[in-house]
Structure formats: structure tokens, C-alpha cells
Simulated scan of single mutants.
Amino acid sequence: MLSDYLPWIVAGAVVLALVIGGVVMSRVAPDVTAPLRRRRPRPHRGHFRPEEEQQTPVRQAAVIINPTKVTDLGPVRERITATCRANGWGEPLFLETTAEDPGPGQAATAVRHGVDLVCTLGGDGTVRNVASVLVGTEMPLGILPAGTGNLLARNLDLPVGLEAALTVALTGRNRRIDVGELRIGPLEPAEHPEAGPDGAAASAQDEPISTPTPQTHHFLVMSGIGMDAAIMAGTNENLKNKVGWPAYLVSGAKHLISPEFRVTVRVDDEPEFRRRSRMVVIGNCGRLLGGLVLMPSALVDDGHLDAVIASPRGLVGWVPVATRVATRRRKGHPTLDHKVCTEIRVVVDRPVPVQVDGDVLGEATEVTAVVRPASLTVRVSRA
């Protein structure tokens, strides 16, 4: 009987083996259709761009313009914009100074806007006013010279052409420089006189003594007291616009015999000394107009200020001063003192004019200058 069912038993065993093998193979063999079923939509073509291109935003520079120093402002803006784009920067932020706000407000606006660089297009006064907001920060300052002297740019060996100067600002290296801080006015408030036997002085205390509020200004190039400030104040603006820096020579010739004043000077912790003087110049750097050097050892990043106290007697007394400047000698005539310091206090016997970086601030009888080392970042050439 078994032999009758043997073919069916063999056939059933074969079928069972094929079913079991199919199940096993389905679990072991890869599913070639799975990638097709799991395929994601094709990414946008922007997904294949370099990672740096996606994550790096376009940098922006703010350009603060003194409109009194620039003619044809429209074409100048176009040149600046073209230079920014050519160097991979975005559309610049343009801000203009005014008589009421010569730069600090515009600099603060640029910083709040989140720019990567603040540039000035103007003279040393514009640079000073803008820099006063950037002192103590990491925001770099680019200098586009457009003034008469451009002394800071000259001391930093920056180009004076617009495109060349802007290219340095956009692609140059950061350099930390010192800043001078000038305080105009007494260090301590005036005290009331003590009451006398008759009580008169005591009654005067009911009316406070009026004393000028001390003012603090920054300077990047030089601050001056006396004759040099009088020269700045006496320079004809129309002549300066026509002939440039030689206009200062005309004003200087008129003030060579300016009145002397008595000055008391204290340098750092040294004992104070007294002189009869015609001017006191306190410098953060030493190069003047026309290639002249007043302070040969002065550097913008040496952590010191240099001071020159000139006390010539009459026209003949200026000869050794002029010789010293022309020969770039640090030591000179006895009527010319040169001091290197971190702080200097100058008290004069009568009000004299005071200037910082060419801007006349008025008259004063006491000033104190201190250095703030490496407190400002400026863009300079990489070479």
C-alpha cells in the first residue's frame, strides 16, 4: 500500500522544500526594489553648492562721508560701490556728516547696523570724530583720505587715491594703534574759599563758583596749545580749498611772533618745570605736512606720547626750531624741549587756543593728555 502513495509523498516533500527555501531566501536576499521605494525627492540644486557659499554672509562696509570735502558725491558713491563689489563686498552703507554731528552719531549708527567695517571719507577731523566711537572696540576703521592734511593716513603710509585706499580698507590687515586722550580743564573742581572772620566768604558759598566743565577729546595725530592752534584757527578756508596745505604756511607766517605765555608742565611722575613758551605740541605720531617730521621717534603704536615745548625768542629764535625739524633731530636748541611720556599736564597763565587733529576747540588754561595704548583698530596695507 505504501508503494501506491510513494510518488505523492515525494511530490509533497519537494513542494514543502521549495516553500521553505523561498521563505528563507526572501529573508536573506536583498530587496532590489527597496531603494526605489525609499528614494527621496531630488534636492534643490542649491543643496550642491559649497558649504562656505551657503553659510558666509556678504560683508558690508559703512562709509561716513564729510560732504564738504567731496565734490560730485554721486559719482564718488558709484566708484565706492563698484570697488566694494569688485572685492566681494556687498552694497555699502552711506552716511553723511553734518555741522551738528561731524561723525560720532554716524559711527554709532553704523555699529548698530552691524557692518563689518567703518570707513571715513574726509579729513583728519572726520577720522577723529568717527574714531572716538570706535576706541576700545574691535570694529576696524578704514581711512579714505579726502582732507587737506590727511596726517594720520600719511603716518600710516596709506594711499591717498580713493580706489586704492578703499581696497586697502577692504582687503588689508588690522593694526592696533594708540589714541591720545586730551582733557581740557582742571583735574579737580575749584574749591570755595574758606570763611573769614567777617563771614563774607561763607555767605558766598550760597552761590556756587562757576567753573568750566572739563571736556575730554580724542586725538590720533597731534594736539596743540598756543601758536599751532592759532595757526589752525587763522587759516583761510577758501585758500585751503584752492591750494591745500600751503595755506597753513601763510597763516603760520602771521603767527611767528605770537605772544609768549608762561607754562607749567608735569610729565608722568617727574617734578614739574616752568617755561616761557609759544606753543606746546603733544603728538601720537610725528610726521607733518610736506614731509617734515616734528617728532622723529614718535610712533602710532609705541604706547607713548611725544611732547614738544617750543620757546623761541623772536624771529631769530625759530631758526634752530626749523633746523631741528628739517634735519629730524630729536635733540635741539635749549629753547625746544622734547619729552616722551604716557601722561602730560600743562597749565598756562592765561587762556590760549587749543586744537586736536586740526580742529580748534576754543581756549583753555589747563590740559592733560594721556595715551590709550592699542585702543583703536585701523586697516593698513598687508605689505
Rank of each mutant, 00 (worst) to 15 (best):
L182K: 07
P186D: 04
E188G: 03
L141W: 02
A200E: 14
I177T: 04
G114H: 05
V111Q: 00
N150I: 06
D124N: 00
E191W: 04
N150P: 12
R128G: 10
E188V: 15
A110C: 03
G172H: 09
G196T: 15
V127Y: 13
G142N: 14
A110K: 06
G123W: 02
E188N: 12
D178W: 08
I184V: 13
P159L: 05
A107V: 00
V118R: 05
V160Q: 02
E181M: 02
A164E: 15
L141P: 07
P193N: 04
G142M: 14
V168H: 09
G180D: 08
L151S: 09
S132R: 12
E138F: 02
V130E: 07
C119I: 07
A190M: 13
R175W: 07
L187H: 06
R112T: 13
V118F: 04
N129L: 04
A200C: 05
E138W: 09
V130C: 00
G122S: 07
R112E: 15
H192F: 11
M139N: 03
V168S: 11
T171A: 14
S132C: 13
A153S: 10
T120R: 00
A200T: 15
V127R: 04
G149D: 09
P197H: 14
V179R: 05
G125H: 10
T167D: 15
T148L: 03
G196E: 04
E138H: 05
G185H: 04
E188L: 14
L170W: 11
G172R: 01
G147N: 07
R128W: 08
D178V: 08
V179I: 09
I143V: 14
A110M: 11
R176S: 15
T148Y: 02
V168T: 15
L166M: 11
E191C: 10
L151K: 02
L170T: 04
V179C: 12
L170I: 13
A107K: 00
T109N: 01
V168Q: 03
P140I: 01
G161M: 01
G123R: 06
E188P: 08
G125W: 05
L151E: 02
G136I: 06
C119R: 01
A131L: 10
T167K: 15
L156V: 09
V111M: 01
A164T: 13
L166K: 11
T120S: 09
A131R: 10
A200Y: 14
G199C: 01
V179E: 06
L117K: 05
A201M: 11
A164M: 03
D157S: 13
I177D: 02
G199L: 01
H113F: 13
H192Q: 11
A108I: 09
L158F: 10
L117I: 12
G180W: 07
L134M: 12
R154L: 13
